[in-house]
Amino acid sequence: MPGRLHHVSLTCASLTASLAFYRQFGFAIEQQYQDEACSIVLLHNQNTRIELFVFSDDVTPQDHETLIYLKAIGIRHLAIEVSNLTTMHDLLSPTTTVTSIKQARLGSFNYFFCYDPDGNQIEVLETNKR
């Protein structure tokens, strides 16, 4: 029985900040839930979903590692495809750390890395048109 990735879940310090960040990529709220312990918001954009958790008790973002540190075992980053990489780079530059735009070693896309409001590494990419 084949499977597919349904969503990625992120625990956030601020729902407001995370919603504002991911809305820049076209994500919209699909579902919401809230009780005394947490708030959950499921975002969608085309066939991609991101689930944001915010807990009532304090959650502290982890210390930032160097961007593009890929050698650690485990999930290292989310990749979000956009239609205009330069425009997104310019949009994000004033609000978060961004790397320069580079061509992927695989050659089929260009990319840069940035942080979301909670320090998660986000790869922003545009596929090369052929």
Rank of each mutant, 00 (worst) to 15 (best):
F27W: 03
K102C: 04
H64L: 10
T86E: 05
N128H: 11
A17M: 14
S9A: 13
L52T: 05
I40D: 01
H44L: 10
N45E: 07
H64S: 09
I50R: 02
E30C: 06
S39L: 07
S93P: 00
P2R: 14
C114D: 00
E36G: 07
L91F: 10
T48K: 04
Q121D: 10
P61K: 15
C114Y: 01
L91Q: 14
L78I: 14
A104G: 08
K102T: 03
E123F: 02
Q46H: 14
Q46D: 09
S100H: 10
R105M: 05
S39G: 09
Y115E: 12
F25W: 04
V124T: 02
S83P: 02
T66H: 13
T96I: 02
I75E: 14
F113Y: 06
I122A: 00
R23P: 01
S39R: 05
L10V: 13
H44P: 02
G26F: 00
T16H: 11
S39P: 08
I29E: 11
C114G: 00
P94K: 14
A17G: 07
A104Q: 13
A104Y: 06
N110W: 08
H77A: 11
F113A: 02
F27C: 01
I73Q: 15
K129G: 07
V8H: 11
G74Y: 15
V82F: 03
F27Q: 00
H77C: 08
R23V: 06
D58I: 13
I75M: 14
S9Y: 09
Y111W: 09
Y33S: 05
Q32S: 08
S18Y: 09
P2W: 08
L91H: 12
A20T: 12
F27V: 00
S108G: 05
L52Y: 04
Y111H: 12
E123S: 01
S18L: 05
H6F: 15
R130M: 04
A17Y: 06
R105G: 10
F53C: 06
R49A: 06
L106P: 03
R105D: 11
D118V: 06
L19P: 11
Q62H: 04
T48F: 12
F109E: 04
M88I: 01
V98H: 04
Y115A: 07
A79C: 15
D116K: 09
S56P: 01
T11Q: 10
F21E: 06
N84A: 03
N84F: 11
L43Q: 03
T11W: 11
A13Q: 15
L70H: 14
D35I: 13
V82C: 03
R49Y: 15
Q31F: 09
E30Q: 14
S93E: 05
I122H: 00
H77Q: 09
R4I: 13
M1A: 14
Y22M: 07
G3N: 11
Y115F: 10
A20I: 05
D57C: 06
V8K: 02
M1C: 08
L78K: 00
K71I: 07
E36P: 04
F113L: 01
L43S: 02
A28G: 10
T95L: 09
Y33M: 05
P2Q: 12
T99W: 01
T97R: 06
D57Q: 14
L85V: 05
D58P: 13
V41F: 03
H89Y: 03
Q32R: 11
E30G: 09
T86N: 12
N128K: 14
F25I: 06
T60L: 13
R105V: 08
V8D: 03
L19R: 01
G107Y: 03
L106K: 07
T16Y: 10
S100A: 09
K71R: 12
